[in-house]
Write a protein that binds this DNA or RNA. Structure first.
Length: 429
RNA sequence: GGAGAUUUGUCCGAGUGGUUGAAGGAGCACGCUUGGAAAGCGUGUAAACGGGAAACUGUUUCGAGGGUUCGAAUCCCUCAGUCUCCGCCA
């Protein structure tokens, strides 16, 4: 485990034990005893740290004195002093060892603690308990003989799953011809939409180190869900959020540069073990998919305004594609590990007759910035943790699925107006 | 991948074992000066983690980790980044 710094969260846990427990319960976190274990271990840690530092201070003072004595030529006094320091050395080493152990213990427990939900997050155990904030767009009436996207994909030769299996394995799609071009068109259009919204485009590495994966909270929580390259101890990114947020790891951002708004297109890699049936059919769930992400870093006082702004930004994008969608406020039990509040966007997939999640917009408050030490200076010159936020704008495969299904006609698949300049045609026939 | 050089604060840069968290400069902030600005002068200018109501104070940090030593930016080891040459390569 990389060093992620002594967490400021500790002070909060100490003085808000009840609140922390309450929040964890809302998030459906099972291992509630962890909180008291952390508090106890941290008390021990402080104690050890105090004792250790006291001895270190003593040693430093004595060592300085030795230097002075030697300078004065009082060799014997210096030797006597040396013996004195040597005597406490063993104790120091002993303490330091214990301290390191306890620190590792505390850190190890702390990284397993999820973020607390915002007060406004509703109670609930699962996706069934999410709140629909609003719904928009007509559910299209499909013509007779309308089919799900996996059949359309075959019919128009847009994606070749069999060959993807041959090349790699199941869940790896081979986009082809118009299918590949439509992907590229969407990526380009989504990025342009984000740039117009004030986001700066980035092309980050698609592979990250463990420090980055810890920073955004993928580790240790989602260890098994990322592809790991053992030889180099690197991870394939599950989302652009990881490299993009880590751009500012260990940085102090001048307040004049806030909020930081970034966007990036990347492929995303997810192992997603243990799903089956209609959930993974066609493009519903794949191991590698394309996504355009938006990330913001904002001052704590404004982060919930920023969250709403990001929701509107994504909403406009979906609207422009003419897809029926709804926005959900996730309940405590359905939220991600690192999030304090999450809105999910779902588009309607007319032939499957179900909602598909295409975006997730979250405020992480200081959970990620605490791990990554992303800070700013306030008016008083004090360093303050920033809040980090991110959202998909958008995840492509399910958008493609729903575009194909909703826009199918007996003559072919209509391309939404906004994509036509990028795609170079108004129909796939 | 091989060989050599290098890695110091916001930046440049000094520093080969003893008040060095770090000279000097630049930048930045504040103050003085000025009709105003520039120049000039003065002062200040890292973070993390502790103790303390606070003033203040302790520890750690000179690429990262380990070691030697009473004491390390300075010596040793391992790893990483950068640069140059060679090799390989889109």
């Amino acid at each position: 485990m990389p060093k992620i710094g002594r967490m400021l969260q500790l002070g909060f846990i100490h003085s808000n034990r009840e609140k922390v427990l309450e929040g964890l319960k809302k998030k459906n976190f099972q291992d509630l005893e962890l909180v008291d274990k952390i508090i106890a271990s941290d008390d021990l840690r402080k104690n050890l740290q105090f004792n250790t530092e006291e001895l270190l201070a003593k040693r430093n003072a004595a060592s300085k004195a030795i230097g002075a004595l030697i300078a004065e030529g009082r060799k014997e006094d210096a030797e006597a002093k040396k013996a004195e320091v040597s005597a406490i050395k063993e104790t120091i080493d002993n303490y330091a060892l214990q301290l390191a152990e306890v620190e590792a213990l505390v850190d190890g427990m702390l990284v397993r603690l999820p973020n607390l939900p915002n007060e406004r997050v509703p109670e609930g155990k699962s996706a069934d308990d999410n709140t629909v904030i609003r719904q928009h767009g007509e559910i299209p009436q499909l013509h007779d003989g309308a089919v799900p996207h996996w059949d359309l994909i075959t019919k128009y030769d847009l994606v070749d799953f069999q060959t993807g299996v041959k090349i790699t394995g199941s869940g790896f799609a081979l986009y082809k011809g118009k299918g590949a071009k439509l992907q590229r068109a969407m990526i380009q259009y989504f990025l342009d939409h984000n740039i117009a919204g004030g986001y700066t485009e980035y092309m980050p590495p698609y592979v990250v180190n463990t420090a980055s994966a810890y920073g955004t909270g993928q580790l240790p929580d989602k260890e098994g869900q990322m592809y790991h390259m053992a030889i180099d101890d690197l991870y394939l990114i599950p989302t652009a959020e990881v490299p993009v947020t880590n751009i500012y790891r260990d940085e102090i951002i001048p307040s004049a540069s806030l909020p930081v708004k970034m966007t990036a297109y990347t492929p995303c890699f997810r192992r997603e073990a243990g799903s089956f049936g209609k959930d993974v059919r066609g493009l519903n769930r794949v191991h590698q998919f394309d996504k355009v992400e938006v990330v913001q870093m904002a001052e704590a006082s404004t982060s919930y305004d920023v969250l709403e702004e990001m929701v509107l930004h994504v909403e406009k994008l979906i609207q422009s594609l003419g897809l029926p969608y709804r926005i959900l406020l996730l309940c405590g039990g359905d939220m991600g590990f690192a999030s304090a509040m999450t809105y999910d966007f779902e588009v309607y997939s007319a032939a499957q007759e179900r909602w598909l999640e295409v975006s997730s917009v979250s405020n992480f408050e200081s959970f990620q910035s605490n791990r990554m030490k992303i800070r700013t200076k306030d008016e008083n010159g004090k360093t303050q943790l920033l809040h980090t936020l991110n959202g998909s704008s958008l995840a492509l495969p399910r958008i493609l699925a729903s575009l194909l299904e909703n826009y199918q006609t007996p003559e072919g698949i209509l391309i939404p107006e906004v994509l036509r300049p990028y795609f170079g045609a108004d129909m796939i026939a």
